[in-house]
């Protein structure tokens, strides 16, 4: 055998190296997910994380059950799902951009509850309804 090839084969990365790589990719993706302000960037970060997971499937397939194809099949699944997800996600972003004029996730805070007084259940519900109505109205005033 060619000594070069043999050397390369002797130094070919093992399970540990591959897992380190996917961990790094996953961490980069997680960091992007948590820090990016642009929704498209977040989507890309999610893709990174998905791909690191898909790679894990392949890696474990290769090192644990080399005779079978289960992990590779799974990876193809993940790719297909990720593609579909990107389509849906991008469609949402387009709609969001049309509606709010931005895809900055820092401004997507309508899930936050306004401060609610704590007098009693009747007041509680009234306050919540008032806030919901106010937000609904302000949204349609834009």
């Amino acid at each position: 055998m060619n000594p070069l090839i043999a050397q390369i084969a002797a130094h070919s990365p093992g399970l540990r190296d591959w897992l380190a790589l996917t961990s790094v990719i996953f961490s980069i993706g997680l960091y992007g997910l948590l820090t990016r302000r642009n929704a498209v960037g977040i989507l890309m970060a999610v893709e990174l994380m998905l791909n690191s997971a898909a790679m894990n499937f392949v890696i474990f397939n290769r090192f644990c059950l080399p005779a079978r194809m289960d992990g590779s099949v799974m990876a193809i699944f993940v790719i297909a799902v990720a593609a579909a997800e990107v389509v849906v996600g991008m469609a949402i972003f387009v709609a969001l951009y049309r509606y709010r004029g931005t895809v900055d996730v820092n401004q997507m805070n309508t899930m936050q509850d306004p401060v609610i007084s704590i007098e009693g259940p009747g007041d509680f519900n009234r306050e919540v309804m008032k806030n919901i109505n106010k937000q609904y109205k302000s949204r349609h005033d834009h």
Binding site: T35, N109, Q112, D113, V115
Partner: peptide, 12 residues
């Protein structure tokens, strides 16, 4: 009420 400051509404 006290812990509601954690509810920022930001998915991130």
């Amino acid at each position: 009420y006290l812990f509601s400051w954690m509810q920022t509404g930001q998915v991130q």
